[in-house]
Amino acid sequence: MVSGNEKTEASMMTDMLIVLLVLAAVSVYYYGLRAAILIAITSAVCCLTDFICIKLRKKEAQLSDMSALMTGLTLSLMLPASAPYFAAVTAAVFAIAAAKQVFGGRGCEIFNPAAVGFLFVSLCFPENILTYPGYSNTFMSMPLDSLVPSDVMLRPSMMRAFIATGSSPAPLLDILVGKFYGPMGTGVLAVIAVAAVFLVLRRTVSAIALLSEIAVSGTAVFILSGFDPLSVLCFFAGGMTLFGMIFLSCEYSTVPKTKSSRFIYGILVGGITVLLHYYAKAENAVVYAVIIAAPFGIELDKRALSFAGMLNKKGIFSKTNKSVKHMQETLDILEKNNEEK
């Protein structure tokens, strides 16, 4: 029998998959067959690794669990279209085996598996993962060899130029439609913004966390760039910032459970992203920020729940008190955790 909670999780996964598939379609449109092969390889290897790890742990694999596919899709969109196939396979295996199954599988991850997988390959193969081909509307524009031939022009990302100059190197329209050097599926700002609205309205992504992340980082970049709105858009489109905020930090298994924790977590992710971008000159600052903030999210949840439990014991707040909706939800989570214990 499927419980109500599992149903919600399945529906969340479906929403995420729909959005990720749309972004995958856009990247295939821009980079052709090679992008499709990369997406297929990464997703397939993630699912296969997940299945093998579950079997090794002597657990039952569930067909309804699409989290590995989601990780695979997210991860593939973060790679450049020129990424070697072995790098995609390495990222997928590492993401699932080292960042997901080692910690106990679905729902037990501390760090977002896709973020960990991406960071691992970007450290292992920086020359392949941090240089990008230009977009093209021809389906067979990119060669299909694992390592792209040297005649294919690979350049550093738009974000690298933005970090160097401090101002947007691309015009507004190109930023909105993702026509710049960067990862294959994380720069189409217009589509990602619509996806964010869709996911927030469907309650798949935490509105509190996402809005606080966008507000904090957007405001900081606006001020630091000398009140230039184009720089803010460039910041969100390049370096997979908005993509990372939606699919890495606000993804339901990574984001904290209580609302107050989500708010603080959002501020943390946004703040750390800006700090790493401006002061560490990190190209994909949001990926590092998500990994740094993840343990804080868990701790914030613990603090919020123990605080709620204390208030409940003292009779200050109870589930019957309708005036504090937020506290009621926190108490619900606390009750559920106690039942699980």
Binding site: F120, L123, C124
Partner: peptide, 15 residues
């Protein structure tokens, strides 16, 4: 055939 340079870094060492 493939070299994983991340393993020479401290984080790769821990893993």
């Amino acid at each position: 055939p493939v070299v994983f340079s991340a393993f020479t870094e401290p984080f790769g060492g821990f893993i």
